[in-house]
Design a protein around this nucleic acid. Structure first.
Length: 204
DNA sequence: CCGGTGATATCCT
DNA sequence: GGATATCACCGGC
């Protein structure tokens, strides 16, 4: 477990430091551990791409609290995605976990992700990763307690880290787009594939 | 490329 | 209260 000293650092320091870390859950008595290969930083204070940008709401309240908790949100009608709350209390920053490799509980992860054809696809993408770990909305606000939810830093951090713009974040103009806030392990097959934004038709 | 799907925030009476 | 726009996605074609 990282002490509070790491997660309380500014999110742009925390995010790349989480590459190679293991996020582990015990849900329904089943242990699954994922080694993180891709993350994105969100900084609520001045980040238009963050859910926390417009201030606390019932959904985003946890991000305004202390570091070391999960923020899990529901998206596109069917997916859960998990963030690790970071930064000093009140800062409302978080790291979205976007991709990883299942390193423990492979059979459980496979059973939770029957659509995955290959093991590298099990946790490649934020919703897939959350699904592997059995995370849903009931875990939003849950502390990283070292038991039900645990986070372990790598003994040897990954050597080659890439960075770039965040995926699919709209409305994040200006300063937010000027800095690469996405970090991944260079060349790793469990990093999600970038999809260019699709212009969606209006419903009618 | 496209559709499916539902919670949320923010507008409007 | 209702309507609407938005959404950090996945899977299948």
């Amino acid at each position: 477990m990282p002490g509070p000293e790491l997660l309380s650092r500014p999110v742009l320091e925390v995010a790349p430091a989480l590459l190679g870390a293991r996020l582990r859950t015990v849900v329904d008595g089943e242990l699954v551990s994922v080694e993180l290969t891709e993350v994105e930083a969100y900084d609520g204070a001045k980040d238009p791409g963050s859910h926390a940008y417009r201030g606390p709401t019932p959904r985003t309240r946890v991000m305004f609290g202390p570091a070391g908790h999960l923020y899990v949100y529901f998206s596109y009608g069917m997916h859960w995605c998990a963030n690790i709350v970071t930064g000093s209390d009140g800062r409302a920053s978080a790291v979205l976990v976007r991709g990883g490799r299942v390193v423990e509980g492979l059979e459980v992860a496979r059973s939770r992700r029957p659509a995955a054809k290959r093991d590298v696809d099990l946790a490649r993408g934020p919703a897939r990763l959350a699904s592997c770990l059995g995370l849903d909305g009931s875990f939003s606000g849950h502390p990283i307690d070292g038991h039900t939810v645990a986070l372990e830093l790598p003994e040897v951090p990954p050597g080659d880290i890439s960075s770039g713009p965040r995926v699919g974040v709209s409305g994040a103009g200006g300063d937010a787009e000027a800095h690469p806030w996405r970090f991944w392990v260079t060349g790793d097959p469990t990093v999600s594939t970038y999809r260019a934004a699709v212009v969606r038709k209006r419903r009618g």
